[in-house]
Amino acid sequence: MPKRRFRWVRVAADRVPTKWVAGIGIGVFLAATAAFGGLETVEAVSLPELSAGEEHRNDQLAVTVKRAVLIDELPLAGVTVEPGERVLALIVDAENRWDEPLPTTRGYSLSSTVALADHPEVEPQGISRYDDTTANPWLQPGVLATIVLAWVVPADRHAGGDDVRVVLNDETLMTGTAVISGQYWDDPVPAAIVTLDIEDVGAGRDAAEPDPGAVGE
C-alpha cells in the first residue's frame, strides 16, 4: 500500500515542534547578524587622501590630478553646454603603466577611473589632450600625457574657491573568455580621494590650450 509506505513522513512531521519554529528562526537571524557585527553601521574603508599634484599609482595607470577649473564652456575638450550650465574640468597627468595602449573612450581607463566624488556614476563627458586637444586620446605605455577631463555641471553647483573631491579608482585586469578575446581592465573600485580647490576662470582662456602658469609646466 503506498499510503502506508509514506506514513513515517507524516509521523515525523507531526513530531516537529512547530510552535518553536518562529523562535528558532529569529534566534538564527540574530546570531548571524551578531556574527557580522550586529546592526552597527559598517565603518567606511578610509581611502588615502591626496591633494593637487600628488600621484596615485596602480598597475594600469599613474594619475596625478593637477588642477580643477570651472569655465563657462570648453568646446575644444568635446563638451557643449546649455544655458545654466558650466564646465568643470580636471587637468590630470596620466601614464599608462600596462604593456598595451589604453583607450580613453567611455568605459575605458581614465573614463572609468577618475570620477567626481559627489556624482561617481557620471563619466567625464569630454576627454582630450591638454596640448593639442586630440579627443579621446590613446595612452601609450610609459608615455606621460596631460589630459583634460570635462563634466557639464549646473552653473550654481560649484563656485571658485570651493573644494572638489575626486575619486580615483583601481581596476582589475580581466582576461576575456568565450566570445570575448584578449585582456581588458574593468571593475573600478575607489582607491584614493583627491581634494582640490576649484579655480573659476570665467569665460576663460580655453583651459585646453597650453597655459604657461599651469602646475608642473
Binding site: 604593456d99 598595451e100 595602449p101 593639442d132 586630440t134 586620446p137 590613446w138 601609450q140 605605455p141
Partner: peptide
C-alpha cells in the same frame, strides 16, 4: 620588449 604601442592618432 613585451610592450605594444599603437600608431598615434595625434
Amino acid at each position: 620588449d613585451g610592450r605594444t604601442f599603437r600608431a598615434s592618432e595625434r
